[in-house]
Simulated scan of single mutants.
Amino acid sequence: MTAPTLHYIHDPLCGWCYGAAPLVRVARSMMTVQPHAGGMMTGSARRQISPSWRQFVLPHDRRIAQVSGQPFGEAYTDGLLNDTTVMLDSGPPITAVLAAQALAGADAGLDMLSRIQQAHYVEGRRIADRATLSELAAAIGLDTDAFNARFDELEGAATQAHIAESLSLLSRVGGGGFPTFVLEQAGKLTVLEMGAYLGQPEAWQARLAQVPGTGPREQATTDINPPFCGIDGCTP
């Protein structure tokens, strides 16, 4: 029996991906999870925080919190989102995840992604800043010098190539945006709908247990209209 792999197509600044973080943790306990970052807010899509952006994003975040149960800290809602000097840029955190993965494998990359999401949405930190990313790498147990060296190697062209490959995978499986979970088994790729499982990690665990080789089979629910962030950004 071929061991399954769950491909996780995401973006570090995708709010619904933060909402799906508990589902990622469950999946990691059951099978290999491979992260693929889509670069939702890179290049010309980067955004400077402004009062209008804050007013746009807060209802969106409240909806994510309501559906998923994920916390949004005051340092984010009342701090970061009021700081108009902050540039929201997916590129550096994506490079940081790739650097962690290069050093210690996919699990380290996923640990880095989780730590970045917490730093942004709970602690209100500037996750596009190199110094912040180095501190987060150290927090998950990576050697800072080794991390910084890998970051230097992977920023720019290598990160853009990864983003292009991620978007190619998203297109190939017919995914509409982030997050998208794609199960790979015996060479076959299947999108797993996950919207109905947000805030329900136990039900998600039961769904994944239906995959051969992961555990006992149980009845799953069907998600028809999952919430997500499009490749050009999130919408409430």
Rank of each mutant, 00 (worst) to 15 (best):
P226T: 11
V182S: 05
Q219E: 13
V67E: 02
S68D: 07
H10Q: 11
L88S: 01
N82I: 00
P216G: 07
P35T: 13
T2K: 07
M41D: 00
E123C: 12
A196C: 13
P51C: 07
L133W: 03
P179N: 14
R217G: 15
Q55K: 13
R63L: 14
G124H: 10
E184C: 11
F151K: 07
H60D: 09
E135A: 10
A206W: 01
S168D: 14
A164M: 10
A138H: 09
Q117T: 10
F147I: 07
W53G: 04
P92H: 03
T42Y: 02
P71C: 08
M31S: 12
H10R: 03
L58Q: 08
E193C: 10
L136C: 06
L136G: 07
L80V: 02
P12H: 04
E184L: 12
E165W: 03
W16P: 01
T214I: 10
R172G: 08
T180G: 12
E74L: 11
A206S: 13
R126P: 02
D143R: 09
E218F: 10
M87R: 09
E123H: 15
M30T: 03
G73F: 00
T180L: 12
F72P: 04
P51F: 02
V33N: 06
G79C: 07
Q210F: 00
L110R: 14
V86A: 01
S171P: 04
T77E: 11
Y8H: 03
A158D: 15
A106T: 12
S52H: 08
H60G: 08
T85C: 05
L133E: 05
A119S: 15
G215P: 05
P35F: 10
T190D: 15
A99C: 07
E123K: 14
